[in-house]
Design a protein around this nucleic acid. Structure first.
Length: 492
RNA sequence: GGUCUCGUGGCCGAGUGGCUAGGCGGUGGUCUGCAAAACCAUUUACAGCGGUUCGAAUCCGCUCGAGACCUCCA
């Protein structure tokens, strides 16, 4: 049973015991979104994955500084010189100021994240706010001799770097391979080597987002921002760097190179990569155009969606798979997730009203240990959930009088469920219903209606009873007849 | 073409040398005026072929299939 946290490190390709550099402080950096469109399901994966990491580390007592950037500049359409900045392109199309685009989509991103119970990071820096840091880093790399300037742009000299360091250590590639396999792209004649990448790009006259620099007006390269901002807020070396698997190469490989070129050492100890979400067996991504935005999931407004799904269903769906596995989207899978989540919520409800017995038939004390062991094993959320679901069977058995639990056991379970479901998994049932006053009123009215219906049922006046039930159903209120009278629930 | 990952029951998904996660669906049942909901029980599996082993879904090899990265992508 793992009592210490183990993390799969992409850099070493194995699970390692987590040992922060300066406990209890822990630094976590995750590559955030480029805000030029609404976030889609794929974006939810790293957000939820690293939200779990953030929550769990905090739960374990670490003082976590979680930095997740917003890319608002420097992210080119292609790596070639002629590439257009994604933000600027969107701004041009929509006739907006680039920062207007950034603000608009950042706000929407935040709203989506909040609905999915993704906690805000400790710091959410924007690339455009750290131009100075990036210029300083370019200077340092130039001084160290690992970059060259040409026509107002600065490129990282991969070959030279590779003589002293290992370019490709993260992605398992060699520079020689890259030479032979790199495709020919237009506009690369400036580079000395196809694998070289831009640290600073000269702005063409048409380029809107530009800043002065020692090399003339331009803008920073995409890979640079994460290196500069992580160093700024977490130091030259820090604990965990996360992101999607598709960023492993070249983005993270370049980050490692930049850090080594600047500071002579790797930035992050542990590299974590979440796997992709697929749709019909293929990666869901911007370039393939097969993505469904989170908003579309929330309102059901997409051709491929049979209906809307609650934000927390999306969250549960993601947590039900291990973060390093691909996860295939389908309506059926989401419906299954929705029902599973409901079962979880219902059990927690049941737990609050469970009658205590004199003895416990089932040992529930080990539940917490098992859950911790699963999470300590590289954040294995699906196994943790399976333990909780096993326990739900016991909870229901107690409710039905088939088994019994002592008050102590029940309190223990309440604590464990709260800890894991709400605190760590962030799956607390939302109370987005009416305010307390309104709720009291509704409860009172419902109680009157159900009384009337009960009376009708007693009189075998099925017409009245069913009419009441059907009318309430139209208001999305489901009446459930049970042994001890009827209960109701607002569905939707 | 290169690098890598993966192929688990109707579906989604864990596990990873022996003790058959879990969810959803299906089926049977409890409850019920009926229904719904809920609950209980139950069902089928490890792509194929070889090898290692007392024993493999789990290790090795091959075959077939899928995907990711190599270009922007979470």
């Amino acid at each position: 049973m793992a009592t210490e946290l183990h993390i799969y490190n992409s850099l070493t390709r194995k699970k390692e015991t987590f040992r922060p550099l300066n406990p209890p402080f822990t630094g976590l950096y995750v590559c955030g979104p480029t805000v030029y469109g609404d976030a889609h399901l794929g974006h939810a994966r790293p957000a939820v994955t690293f939200d779990l990491v953030f929550r769990y580390l905090r739960h374990l007592g670490y003082k976590v500084r979680y930095v997740r950037n917003i890319t608002d500049v420097g992210h080119l359409e292609s790596d070639a010189d002629e590439g257009e900045d994604k933000i600027a392109k969107k701004a041009r199309i929509e006739q907006l100021e680039p920062m207007e685009v950034v603000q608009y989509y950042s706000d929407r991103y935040h709203a989506d994240m909040e609905k999915m119970h993704v906690l805000k990071p400790s710091i959410e820096p924007r690339a455009s706010g750290h131009i100075i840091e990036q210029i300083e880093m370019v200077k340092a790399i130039l001084e160290a001799g690992f970059a060259y300037e040409i026509n107002g742009s600065v490129y990282f000299d991969v070959q030279k770097y590779n003589q002293q360091f290992h370019y490709g250590k993260l992605s398992g590639r060699s520079v020689e391979e890259m030479l032979s396999s790199t495709r020919d792209l237009d506009g690369q004649e400036e580079k000395r080597h196809p694998a070289d990448f831009a640290l600073w790009k000269k702005a063409t006259p048409a380029h809107i987002m530009r800043w002065p620099s020692p090399w003339g007006e331009g803008f920073p390269g995409w890979h640079l921002e994460c290196s500069a901002m992580s160093a700024r807020y977490l130091g030259e070396t820090f604990d965990i760097h996360g992101g999607g698997m598709d960023l492993l190469f070249p983005h993270h490989e370049c980050e490692i190179a930049q850090s080594n070129a600047t500071f002579g050492k790797d930035s992050a100890q542990y590299w974590m990569h979440n796997n992709m979400i697929t749709i019909e067996g293929q990666k869901m991504g911007k370039s393939l155009g097969n993505f469904i935005t989170l908003r579309e999931f929330f309102n059901g407004n997409h051709q491929k969606l049979e209906r809307a799904f609650h934000p927390l269903t999306i969250r549960f769906f993601i947590l039900q798979a291990h973060y390093r596995s691909t996860l295939d989207f389908s309506n059926e899978a989401l419906e299954a997730a929705e029902k599973g989540l409901k079962r979880l919520w219902q059990a927690m409800d049941t737990l609050n009203n469970l009658p205590a017995g004199n003895a416990s038939d089932t040992d529930v004390a080990s539940l917490a240990d098992k859950c911790y062991a699963a999470l300590n094993d590289d954040f294995n959320s699906p196994v943790t959930l399976s333990y909780l679901f096993d326990t739900i069977r016991t909870i229901n058995a107690v409710k039905d009088g088939h088994e019994s639990l002592t008050q102590e056991s029940i309190d223990n379970l309440k604590q464990v469920f709260k800890t894991f479901v709400i605190d760590i998994f962030g799956l607390g049932e939302p109370e987005n219903g009416p305010s307390d006053n309104d709720q009291e009123l509704i409860n009172g009215l419902m109680s009157i209606l159900l009384d009337i219906r009960q009376q009708a049922r007693k009189n075998k006046d099925w017409d009245t009873a069913d009419k009441l039930r059907d009318s309430l159903q139209k208001l999305n209120i489901t009446v459930k007849d049970g042994k001890d009278g009827a209960s109701w629930e607002i569905t939707k």
